[in-house]
Every structure is written in C-alpha cells, then in structure tokens.
Design a protein around this nucleic acid. Sequence first.
DNA 1: TGGTTTGTACAGTTATTTCTGTACGTAAAA
DNA 2: TTTTACGTACAGAAATAACTGTACAAACCA
Lengths: 180, 180
Amino acid sequence: MKDHEILERTRTIVIDAIAQNMHLYGITASAGRLYGLLFFSDKPLTLDEMKEALGMSKTSMSVAVRSLLDLNMVEKVWVKGERKDLYAIKDDWYECFFDYFTIKWQTAIAMNSSAMEKSIAKLQKLIAEPETSEEIREQAFIDIKKLEERLDYYDWQNRLIDSFETKEILNFVPIEKKKD
Amino acid sequence: MKDHEILERTRTIVIDAIAQNMHLYGITASAGRLYGLLFFSDKPLTLDEMKEALGMSKTSMSVAVRSLLDLNMVEKVWVKGERKDLYAIKDDWYECFFDYFTIKWQTAIAMNSSAMEKSIAKLQKLIAEPETSEEIREQAFIDIKKLEERLDYYDWQNRLIDSFETKEILNFVPIEKKKD
DNA sequence: TGGTTTGTACAGTTATTTCTGTACGTAAAA
DNA sequence: TTTTACGTACAGAAATAACTGTACAAACCA
C-alpha cells in the first residue's frame, strides 16, 4: 500500500519535471506528461490507456501522441492480435535529440536562408539599376553584407546539424558509460 | 520613392521569416520582429523608436526587449548625452546560439536531473526497507535503471553544451568564411 | 527642492492555444 | 452483409498568453 504510493510518487516527480521542460522541443506540457508516462511504462499503451492514466480526452491523447510521433519521440508498435494502435517511447534518446534539430531547426534555417537569398537577389537587381540613387545603393550594399554574414552563420548551423544527423558529433562528444 | 520601397520590402521579407522561426528560442513572434528590426538598424534604438517602428505599445516593447536581453540576443548600449535606454543586436550569432543552450537547456537539464536523482534516492531507500514487497522492489530496480540511463543521457547533453560554452565545438565544426 | 521624463508593474482586454464531446470515416468482426 | 469498435476532424468551451493603457517609482534636470 504505502510502497506502491512511493513508487508512484517518485514517478510523478520525474514526469512533472519532464513535462515542464518539454517546451524546449516545442511540445505542449500535456504531451510531455504523456511522454513521461510512456517513459515508465513497461509496455506499449493504447489511446484508451493513456486517456485513463492521464484523465484526459481521447482526442487530446490522439493529438499529443501525434506531436510526439512527428518528433520521432514515440513510435507505433504492432502487436499480434491487438486491434488498437499501440505506442511506445523511442528509447534512443540521442537519436531523438538529433532528430529534433533535423526536423525543426533545419526547416527553420531553410526558411530564413531562402528569404535572405531572395532579398539579396532583389537588392543586387536594385543596385544594378542605373536610376537607383547613390544613397539607396549604399544602403543596399550594407543590407547585402549583413545578409551574407547571416547566411554564413546558417551554413555553420547546418553543418553542425549535419554532424548530428550523421552522428559524427559522437566522435567529438562521445557517449560514455558512467561507472556503476 | 520606388527604390526605398524595394529596400523596405526586402527587409520585411527577412524580418517576417526571422519572426516566424523565433519560437525555436522560446521567444514570441513580436520579439522576433523586434530582433529583425534591430538586425537591420544601423544604430541602437530606444523603446520609443521601436514602438514607432512596429506600431506597438511601449509596454510590449519593454517586455520584448527584455526577453531578448535574457537570451543575450540584444544588449543595452550606452551613448553619451542620451537619456533614454538604447538597445542594439548582439552581432556574434555564434555566441548567441551557444548562450541559448547554456541559458535554457542547461537549466532544464539540471531540473530534470535533480528530479531523477531525488527519485533514485527514494527508490533505493524503498529497496533497503525490509518490509518492502518483492514485487515493488523489482519494479523499483527497473525504474532506477531507467533513470540512470536517462541521467547518462543528460550527462552527455551537458558535455555537448559545455563544448558550446567553451567554443571547443568550433574545433569540430569550424566557422568557414564563404568565398565571395 | 519641485517638475519632467523614462521604464515597468499591474489590471483589464483581446487573441491564441488547448482541451472536450460529438460526429463520422474506416476497418475489423460477426 | 450488418454490426461494432477505433481514431481523428471539427466546432465550441475553457484556459493561457499576448497586448494595451494607466499609474507609479526612479532617475534626471532645473
């Protein structure tokens, strides 16, 4: 009786902490709780079991689990003879961390880079125009310089994320087994 | 007339893109716009100038600029004879990127680690109790193992972020000047 | 000292996000 | 085939976050 409570409480402490910090991945706290639930679960769970465990609607569970799927934090598991969909946590944390940058950051970097490249092109065209005033031309030069610097920075970010994607980063910051 | 519009439009495109992706840093889109404004500004701006440029309240500018200050994305600039506070973008993007992890991620990791360490201690105590049932004891062992694995992962994350903080990461993924 | 100006705290408002229940399409079971 | 169960789309409700205007404290100036 008391034992079980302690076990449950220690889990809750951890789940709360995880949920609270999940926003770093752009994920709602509820999805974080769900992640914590799956972290401790010894078997894949159905939407109904999640709903039951977290006291939320099935719809919310469906949404939350999908957001976790999108980030490769959770996977759909097939179990023979089970009609319902089952979901389990992906237990390669490192992979998951890397995927986050590949999925979210690389997209954002691509968007920003694209916008900046387009702007540079427009500015160069503006500079090439003979009727552009000297003042404007000068400002355009300055803007182009700023944008190119920024593009260099995005290029660096991409190279960093590439080292995540290929796991080459682990040669630089290796996974070490802690001594027991 | 037309020139100036083109210049303005190219800036807007870029600012919009930046604002849209700023959520990756846990920052509101408005603060993102402000960041974009400062990115193109050739001089530090006052709250009133920001308010004017973005058509928002001074209070909002105050809040937004503070969120950027907290992430070391912006700095307060002192200018002789100027009574108002002036703010400028921090132009070391790399530093800013590293700071983000040091400020946000390290804090989150510390919170999670702390919660897990506390839980492990409680579980070990539970295991040591003679009246704990064998079933509970077994479950506690499983939980401890999971938590310790997770702690190893957090340790790795910390080492990665350390390499950001010390900039040693740049030895692995160097900043390369793009050829002009 | 008293009179301005500047930045922010606070409370109220608006906008956005998150959550719920119903309704429905799809697929398995009978 | 009909029946049943599952997961999700959708619309409305509840909760949260973002923004604004007022009011005030601190700093500056006279």
